[in-house]
């Protein structure tokens, strides 16, 4: 259900300003406005402003966050691991668009001298600062049973697959489950408890078209639902934001086509 206003304790207040140290070159200073929230304090979330000398840190948004945590304010919390776009931990909303901080270059954030806002992935409950609660998101993925389901006895060597059939999984298996797409989707915002969201559905499709899988019909049965699948209205936000350049909207469209093929 649509919820267009924030609850009282989630209204974002003005926070601290952390100016750059004296003597730094004003030309290389960029101000970052970062969402801060610590549920243990009972305070409302706030926007903290950090003036960062970007010549002192690496070229990516994640470098800025690490620089802030190391040099300016160690209380800032965010998830990160691989720093090369393969783990999906550092997904967040950067300058109004969901992405992963490690591959989001500062040069992509257009407009010199503009304040860059960084907030957690939208419409999830926040654990602390830029760390959202992804429990439901992972449960949706698990509900897709992302593994081979077969009834034929296990072969001696392996389940065989033609190269052409393997090729069909390209553009699907690369998903790193960063949740950028699902949390960019208005349908997921309003009905995230029932709608599975683009990330889970992309995975569902990956197993639906796996030539080795023997549970295609049951997988389709589980998706035949006005909310689970059909809350997708091809808004295209998922495809627009995917940091890996995948196309969840197209995968969902293909699932709809499979269901129609079964129907008519």
């Amino acid at each position: 259900m649509a919820q267009l206003t924030l609850p009282k304790n989630s209204k974002i207040t003005k926070g601290k300003h952390w100016p750059a140290p004296d003597g730094s070159d004003p030309a290389s200073i960029t101000t970052f406005r970062i969402y801060r929230y610590d549920p243990d304090t009972g305070d409302n979330p706030r926007w903290d402003l950090y003036d960062v000398d970007t010549s002192k840190c690496g070229p990516m948004t994640l470098h800025v966050l690490i620089y802030i945590k190391d040099e300016i304010d160690p209380t800032l919390s965010f998830r990160r691991s691989c720093r090369e776009g393969i783990c999906g931990s550092c997904a967040m909303n950067i300058d109004g668009r969901n992405s992963i901080a490690c591959t989001k270059g500062l040069d992509e954030l257009k407009g010199k001298g503009r304040v860059i806002s960084i907030s957690p992935l939208p419409h999830l409950s926040v654990v602390k600062d830029l760390v959202p609660d992804l429990s439901d998101f992972y449960a949706q993925h698990a509900a897709m049973e992302p593994y081979l389901r077969t009834t034929t006895p296990e072969p001696q060597k392996e389940w065989r697959q033609a190269p052409e059939d393997r090729d069909r999984l390209d553009g699907l298996y690369e998903c790193i489950m960063c949740a950028s797409c699902s949390t960019a989707c208005p349908s997921y915002w309003w009905n995230g408890d029932k709608y599975l969201g683009p990330a889970a559905l992309l995975q569902a499709y990956r197993w639906l078209i796996d030539s080795r899988d023997e549970a295609t019909g049951e997988r389709l049965d589980a998706l035949e639902d006005p909310f689970r699948l059909y809350r997708c209205h091809t808004i295209m936000n998922c495809t627009q934001v995917c940091p890996k350049g995948l196309n969840p909207a197209k995968a969902i469209g293909e699932i709809k086509k499979m269901l129609l093929e079964r129907l008519v």
């Binding site: 091809t234 295209m236 495809t239 909207a249 197209k250 469209g253 086509k257």
Partner: peptide, 8 residues
């Protein structure tokens, strides 16, 4: 779109 085209 529903026919499977134009998603890029």
């Amino acid at each position: 779109w529903d026919s499977g085209h134009g998603y890029e």
